[in-house]
Amino acid sequence: MDISPVFFYLFAGLALGCSLLVVLKKNPVASAFNLVMVFFAFAGIYAMLDAHLIAALQVLVYAGAIMVLFLFVIMLLNADVPSFDLQRSHPGARVVAGLLCAVLLLAFVWAFKNSPSPVEPGQFSASRIEAAGGNTRVVSELLFSEYILPFELTSVLLLGAIVGAVAIAKRKQKVGAGGGVK
């Protein structure tokens, strides 16, 4: 696996820059567009790591579905007015936030410096996956054989979440409309 450093720094820089813009932009829609770019940059890095399936799913699920939904909600609620004022934040709060950020950065640096880098590729090296018929086949076969129980449990969990969301939405509507809902 040889990652071209040029492209790595390109995608990593894009991810970092756009992540910053997500936080710094005052308009929520602009933040959302930048978040899409972050997902894109991640997908680029995944693709360079030969994880084409993850890259495709990253774009398909996060950029293609979830963020469109986010944008829909933001635009529907018309959240154009910033809910907080940057100018009026307490100077003490800024110092605390800066300190916390520095601590987090140090923790990351420490973790990366001290973790041993894997020299031996694991069970699923790129060449083995290629021999077994590619990413998609290997992942789907594992998902529906060895990991079938967690997979099914996750789908039950998601179904529960959907039913719960619908139930909550319906109940509120009933109260608001004064029994006008069928």
């Binding site: 084409h52 399936l53 495709a56 774009v59 398909l60 950029a63 293609g64 469109v68 990413n135």
Partner: peptide
């Protein structure tokens, strides 16, 4: 591409942006 169809859907889903 190995992921063929998934690639198509992931890219096509971006057209809405």
């Amino acid at each position: 591409l190995n992921v063929g169809l998934l690639y198509v859907f992931s890219v096509a889903s971006l057209g809405v942006y």
